[in-house]
Structure formats: C-alpha cells, structure tokens
C-alpha cells in the first residue's frame, strides 16, 4: 500500500552533491559540508511514493529504495 515505509540508501561514489534529496527530504538526507556527499540521517525511512520521487530526481542515480525490514513485516 502507498503508506508503506521504505528505507533509502545512497551510493556514495555516484553522488554528485546535487542536493535534490536534501531539498525534497531534509529530515532524511544531508549533504556534508566539504564534498557535498549525501548520507541518510535520522530514521532513514520514507513513505514509498516520496522515496520514489527522490530516486527519480537524484541527478547521479545514487539513491535506491531498500525495503524497510520492519515495514516489510507489516501487511496491515
């Protein structure tokens, strides 16, 4: 269902520091001050549709969705 939470991951080598992830989801992604490489912060989970938008907008195709272990165990 659309409310499913999914985890997201950043592939560091592909990240070009475009900042779309931090713009869209500032509570989940933060770019470092030096080389602007993104990393996942906080819980690192998002509702699936929002995660898909971030994946779609990442200019380096560096972000992927990983099914959240807890969410995948919930079918309700």
């Amino acid at each position: 269902m659309s409310g499913d939470l999914v985890a997201v991951a950043v592939e560091e080598e592909r990240c070009i520091g475009g900042g779309q992830c931090e713009m869209l989801e500032p509570e989940v992604f933060l770019l470092d001050d030096d080389e602007a490489i993104s990393s996942v912060i906080g819980s690192g989970v998002l509702p699936r549709p929002r995660a898909e938008v971030v994946v779609h907008r990442c200019p380096g195709a560096a972000i992927s969705i990983v099914e959240h272990p807890e969410a995948s165990g919930t079918d309700g």
Binding site: I16, G17, G19, E22, M23, P26, L31, D32, D33, D34, E35, A36, I37
Partner: peptide, 9 residues
Amino acid sequence: RMVAGAFTP
C-alpha cells in the same frame, strides 16, 4: 566535489 560543498541547500 571541489566546490559542491559551498552550494548545498
């Protein structure tokens, strides 16, 4: 990456 850090949100 040499300059991107200055331009993050």
